[in-house]
Amino acid sequence: MQFVIFKLGEEHFAVETDKILSINDMMTITKVPKSPEYIKGLINLRGSIKSLVDVNLLLNIKSEKEQNNIIILKVDEEEIGISVDEVEEVIDIDEYKLQKLETHNTEGYIKGVIDLEGRLLTVIDIEKLLNH
C-alpha cells in the first residue's frame, strides 16, 4: 500500500495515495462568508476552483505552525483540498504493518496506526473524515 505522510502539529498522519490527485504548495485562499469554520476558503488550482478544508479542525489538533502544503483529494466525485503543515514523503508500507484500533476507534475515520521506525503514523480514511 502506498501512503502520503504529512504532519499536523507534532503528529504524523498517513493517507492512501489512491484518493490523492496532487500535492501543492500553499496558495492564495479566498475566504467564503458564512461558510462552516472548517472551510478555510476556495483555491484556484490551474483554473479549477476547489474548496479548502482545514483538517486540523476536523481532527481537533491545535497547531501554531504555518501550513505549507495542500493535498488535493477525490472524495465522492468531488475534488477537495486539505491544508496540512507539511507533506513529508510518499512511501510503500506493507499492509500487515497497519495495526487496527477497533477498541478505541470511536470516530470511524481512523483506519489504524503504523509504527514506522519509531514514528507513529495515524492512518485516516479521508472520505469518512470529510463526510463526518
Rank of each mutant, 00 (worst) to 15 (best):
I80F: 02
E77L: 14
V87K: 03
G9M: 08
K65S: 14
K31V: 11
D25Q: 13
G9R: 07
I29S: 08
T103I: 11
N24E: 04
K19S: 15
T103G: 06
E78H: 14
K62E: 08
E11Y: 11
E88D: 04
K65W: 05
S51E: 00
T28Y: 04
V55D: 04
I70E: 01
D94R: 03
I29P: 04
N68D: 09
K65T: 04
I5K: 13
I114K: 01
Q67F: 03
Y96P: 00
E86R: 12
V113D: 00
S22K: 13
K19H: 15
E95R: 06
E86T: 10
L73W: 00
E95K: 05
I71E: 02
G47N: 09
D25I: 10
M26I: 15
L42R: 04
N44F: 09
H104P: 02
K7A: 08
K65Y: 14
I82F: 07
E16M: 11
V55K: 06
V55E: 05
E16T: 10
I91H: 05
Q2M: 14
G47P: 03
I43C: 05
E10Q: 12
G47E: 07
P36C: 12
L98R: 07
G108K: 00
D76E: 13
I70G: 04
V15P: 01
G41F: 09
R46T: 13
S22Q: 14
F13W: 08
Q2L: 12
Y96V: 00
Y38A: 06
P33E: 10
V4I: 15
E88L: 00
K65L: 11
K111R: 04
S51K: 03
I29Y: 02
D76R: 14
I110V: 02
K31M: 02
Q2N: 15
L58D: 09
M26Y: 10
G108T: 01
L59P: 01
E89F: 05
I70A: 10
Q67K: 14
E88K: 11
L57M: 12
K100D: 02
I61E: 08
S51G: 09
V75L: 15
V84M: 06
V87W: 11
N60P: 04
E11F: 09
P33Q: 12
Y109L: 06
K50T: 03
H104L: 14
E16H: 10
T106C: 00
